[in-house]
């Protein structure tokens, strides 16, 4: 490791990636101002690669004061469009904690944020979002909606809805007319009954599907239903 380090140190700044973000290796000897310029250059070069990525960053090879760290972070965000969620130090245990924090943060971001889509989703079409989705239109049989957050269909849901795509069982699927072929929430799956359902044309009955104790429940949307949901 020491040998390797020495070899790498010929370059003042090295960026390495890991599953949760990047590790930046810094030359310990050169003056801090020079180091900042090197970092700026390095990140400018690879800004396309990092485009709008959200990640955790860790620094190695040089002891940094809090102020220095802050300056480096500023330089990084200025030169590459990265959103740094947190800075991690080498400690494995703490990395785990941060990783969990990051995962949780992303989950929440996805559920809180939302997008909307206007139009009918037809057979064979797949709408996949990294946030909750509101569809102004119908989801026809054979169409699929996949969301890491919640799914709300302001129309009829005949196709497949997959909410909480990253394994979030707290997500829900709601539709004005609920005739979904299949609903998946997190890691729970439910399918429609095999007997043809009579379509109640006259009665307006919006429904919501959610997970409770490992099963998917579909209820009419009422105040009680909301309070029943965990």
């Amino acid at each position: 490791m020491e040998e390797g380090m020495k070899k790498f140190m010929k370059q003042p700044v090295i960026i390495k990636s890991n599953p949760y973000g990047i590790m930046v290796m810094l030359e310990p000897m050169i003056p801090f101002e020079q180091l900042l310029t090197e970092i700026a250059e390095k990140f400018k070069d690879s800004s396309k690669f990092f485009k709008d990525a959200k990640m955790a960053v860790s620094f190695e090879g040089r002891e940094l004061t809090i102020e220095e760290e802050k300056k480096i972070l500023d330089v990084i965000t200025e030169n590459a469009s990265i959103r740094i969620l947190c800075v991690i130090d080498k400690d494995k245990e703490r990395e785990e904690t941060f990783k969990k924090a990051l995962d949780e943060a992303q989950k929440n971001v996805k559920i809180d944020g939302g997008q909307y889509y206007k139009g009918t989703l037809r057979s064979g079409q797949v709408l996949e979002t990294e946030s909750s989705i509101i569809i102004l239109g119908d989801v026809n049989p054979g169409a699929t909606v996949i969301s890491t957050g919640n799914i709300v269909v302001l129309g009829a849901l005949y196709g497949m809805a997959y909410a909480g795509g990253s394994g979030n069982n707290k997500a829900f699927v709601a539709a004005l007319d609920m005739y979904a072929t299949q609903i998946r929430i997190g890691d729970v799956m439910a399918r429609s009954s095999d007997k043809p359902v009579k379509r109640k044309k006259s009665k307006f009955d919006p429904k919501i599907a959610y997970v409770e104790s490992g099963n998917i429940y579909i209820d009419s949307i009422t105040k009680e239903a909301f309070s029943d949901m965990q």
Binding site: G124, P141, G142, T181, Q182, M189, R191, S192, D194
Partner: peptide, 16 residues
């Protein structure tokens, strides 16, 4: 791209 046998068999809700 144009699947239909599943609906004719009445098994469309079981496809994973």
């Amino acid at each position: 791209g144009l699947r239909n046998l599943d609906v004719v068999m009445g098994l469309e809700n079981r496809i994973v």
